Simulated assay, not measured.
Amino acid sequence: MAVDSAARRPSALRPVLIGGALVTIMGLLFGVPWWTLVAAPGWGEPAFAVGSALFAGAALATPFLMFAGQRPGGDRLSVAGSVVLGAAWVLFSQSVLAVVVRVGLEAVGVADAARITAAWVAAVSAGLLVWGYYEAMRVPRVKEVDVVLPRLGKGLDGARIVLLTDTHYGPTDRAAWSAKVTEVVNALEPDVVAHTGDIADGTVAQRRAQAAPLADVEAKLARVYVTGNHEYYGDPLGWLAHMRDLGWQPLHNHHVVVERGGDRLVLAGIDDHTAHHSGHPGHRADLTAALDGADPDLPVVLLAHQPKQVAVAEAAGIDLQLSGHTHGGQIWPFHHFVRIDQPEVAGLSRRTDRTQIYTSRGTGFWGPPFRVFAPSEITLLKLRAA
């Protein structure tokens, strides 16, 4: 009996630990800006009361809005919660910087240092949020990258792969945005278009209209897709089937071979790193299955949602891995936290003599509709033979 009780103890403590962590995070996220903007400057009792009420209300409302927004018909609540959360993060990061600045100002005898830094936090945060909203909602700029693959045949030299990832069709209706993204992709005249997951937050039924323009994406050789972690929060089987209906080839631990100019290239894909926790039979990242039957002498481009999956790619001698997931941090300085979990945050990196990885900052955004110092992108990768 003692063994059974010990086995149950972690599950019993789990809600307490989660609740404690949530309270701590929300306390810091809203408490530090409250101190910087409301308490420390000493604006007077009326301003203190109003400001304190606003911060307390926002701190209490945010978890409710985020969780209630996950229910059917809760998109507006989700958007509201995400906006407040994003604003709180920007205010928090600027407030942390303001503490350092305030100490410096007080050290040199500047009067009203608390009020000066409070005004600075408010003005800079407002500017960053306006700019960040624009950056999140605009059609991504095209980022062109040349990638030299020593094993690539001359017939494939100059092949153009367009990478989309983390479109996150969600509570904010971006059907028109999606159509404009498709126009940009088609203008690039790609040989291959790859989508490396997190296509949507929600089911196919909820996000069908936003995903519809993907049917119009044009590629000379292939349109390929793999799941991200967010598919497994919702409807992975539905999205795999729907992408096939839209004319894309889901690479569910599978590969296809494309040919140009007499030379061939393997396009392989694996499920997201979290897929084995989903409860769906056969869903797990399985590179051995993905490469089964592939000619080992051909170069391989691997689609894998998370950069951390590159460890398996390195061991298998993959030539190039394409990933997303990180959003480049999305809102500065969150990229420092991303580095704790992922080996790469953005851009092209060489991992071994053979294996390279390109990590996109993402085409869309998740949650807060802001991008601060982490611009979205539509990536055009031009493959070059050695």
Score class of each variant (00 low, 15 high):
340 I>N: 10
118 A>T: 11
118 A>W: 10
187 A>R: 15
333 P>G: 02
18 I>G: 03
199 I>K: 02
304 A>D: 06
270 I>C: 03
52 S>K: 05
369 P>G: 03
83 V>P: 06
195 H>E: 09
159 A>P: 12
305 H>K: 04
295 D>A: 01
231 E>M: 07
199 I>E: 00
48 F>N: 03
228 G>Q: 07
65 L>Q: 06
13 L>A: 12
220 K>E: 12
329 G>S: 04
349 S>V: 07
186 N>Q: 10
327 H>A: 03
350 R>W: 13
308 K>Q: 06
331 I>S: 01
343 P>H: 00
206 Q>Y: 03
257 V>A: 09
70 Q>F: 12
31 G>K: 14
32 V>S: 11
222 A>W: 03
92 F>L: 13
68 A>S: 07
49 A>H: 15
269 G>C: 01
135 E>K: 10
340 I>G: 11
212 A>P: 06
288 T>H: 07
136 A>E: 01
17 L>R: 15
111 A>W: 15
220 K>I: 05
101 V>P: 01
330 Q>W: 08
311 A>C: 01
333 P>F: 04
125 S>D: 02
112 D>V: 05
265 L>W: 11
291 L>D: 01
253 N>E: 06
76 R>K: 13
301 V>G: 02
209 A>G: 09
229 N>V: 10
155 G>N: 07
156 L>P: 01
330 Q>F: 05
356 Q>G: 09
277 H>N: 11
167 T>M: 13
357 I>Q: 02
115 R>V: 13
168 H>Y: 10
89 W>K: 10
165 T>P: 07
55 F>G: 06
95 S>H: 08
47 A>R: 14
11 S>Y: 13
49 A>G: 15
282 G>I: 04
4 D>V: 15
25 I>F: 15
109 G>A: 09
322 L>A: 05
108 V>W: 14
189 E>C: 05
178 S>F: 04
281 P>L: 05
113 A>V: 13
360 S>E: 12
85 L>C: 08
380 L>E: 15
158 G>Y: 15
386 A>N: 08
106 E>D: 14
323 S>C: 07
29 L>Q: 11
343 P>I: 00
222 A>G: 02
180 K>I: 01
34 W>V: 12
311 A>N: 00
52 S>V: 13
215 A>D: 14
269 G>S: 05
171 P>S: 14
259 E>T: 14
385 A>D: 11
188 L>W: 05
